[in-house]
Amino acid sequence: MNNHLKLLSSLESNTCFSEQQPDYLSRAFFRTDLSNPAEHNDLHHGLFYRIPNDIANRLFLLGGFDKLQQETLKVFQETAIMIRKPALEVIDYLRRTDFTKPPNSYVLYGPIGSGKTFSLNHILHYGFMEKFILINCTRPTDWINWPQEQAQSTTKVKRIDTPLDAAIWLQTFKAQNMTILDELKLTSLNRYTWSQREHTEPGDPIQSIIEHGINRINHASDCMAVLLKELKLNSAKGNCRLMVVVDKANAFYEPSRLRFPDRTFATVDDITIARAFKKLFRKDWQNGAIVASVCKKLVVPYRLLSISGIPKKENDRDRTYKQWGPFNVKHLSDYPKSLLTDQDRQWLQRPISKTDDGQNEIRFLSGMNPGQVFHICSDL
């Protein structure tokens, strides 16, 4: 505090300001007037910037911040975000990305409350300004564990639909991307049958799939899955660029609490919209990027038992929420490799690694040494 006061005294003695000097100084110390994330750099690290209200209302119409964060933003009547180093780093990577290649994946990690959600929203705003099509998932646990409604899928495959959650996501997607979709005029590349009288033909606007899912709730889950599929196909053809932004992505690798009518537990891949969204993590498309965060707050009791090595002596249902609350996970690692489980440990993710050229490159870099192969591939 003393050093801070000395700095102010030095500025006052060497610089002539108007009578508004204290307000100007206090504003300069913690805020920047640059509201476009594309203009942010290391000089703005630690400062707050304001997202214009018209953009914030579109980006965060139905989510993006938890309840406490929403109350804070409401008190100050503005959406102000601190410019953090991870967000600046990811934005810099996105500027230098070759979008003709399969999408790069960026994972934000850190202790609970370290600002991962705000950094994701900073990057989401950057994608909006740079005219990416935004595919945003803020609460995957709602789809996987606590959907507003669930129903048996009408398809031949044994799956669970969550129509209300799918319709809400479609409304959010429409709000975030209505302008860019009108500019790009993307169309469906395949034919889809929703009922005997309702179809989507090749060449129909992609907006028709969105509107159908919003207006016909029973078809919302299938419409969301089809929309994500069509966006991947269009991006692979170079018709658009996608930015997939997921908060708490490790939820897609946790067990689900949903059950089929026969009372057997469903997996994440048995839930229509979760399965469709999870396919975006693959490397089988171009012109896009994947930005996600992981958080150990989501780790459920049976994961705690298996990771910590504590012997299971009583039923999980007998344990109180206070004892097994989401914040009682200090002994767990914050790193993605611990939170994404073994399902996501696919070292050779790029298709080129399976070709002869890719294999020869690995042999050259490792000198045919198995230890070096492990060292090279472990970070992929």
Rank of each mutant, 00 (worst) to 15 (best):
Y302P: 01
V294K: 05
M243N: 01
K312Q: 15
L228G: 02
M243G: 07
P261T: 03
K278M: 00
I271K: 14
V245G: 01
A251Y: 11
F260S: 05
K322L: 09
P301K: 11
I290V: 06
G288I: 02
A289E: 02
K278Y: 04
Q349V: 01
K297E: 06
L339K: 00
L242C: 03
I307N: 10
K237P: 05
V226N: 14
I352N: 10
V244K: 09
K283A: 01
G325M: 00
L227W: 05
L231G: 09
V291S: 02
Q346Y: 09
F252I: 02
R319V: 08
D262C: 00
D269L: 08
K354N: 09
V226K: 15
K337Q: 12
K297F: 04
A236K: 12
R350Q: 12
F281V: 06
Q346C: 08
V294R: 03
K279N: 09
G358V: 14
V268P: 05
K248V: 08
V299H: 11
V300H: 07
D316A: 13
L340M: 07
L280G: 03
S338G: 07
F327Q: 11
V268F: 01
T272L: 14
L305V: 05
I307R: 15
D262R: 03
T341W: 10
R345H: 12
N315C: 09
P311H: 07
S293T: 05
I352K: 15
Y321D: 10
N239H: 11
T272C: 06
V226M: 15
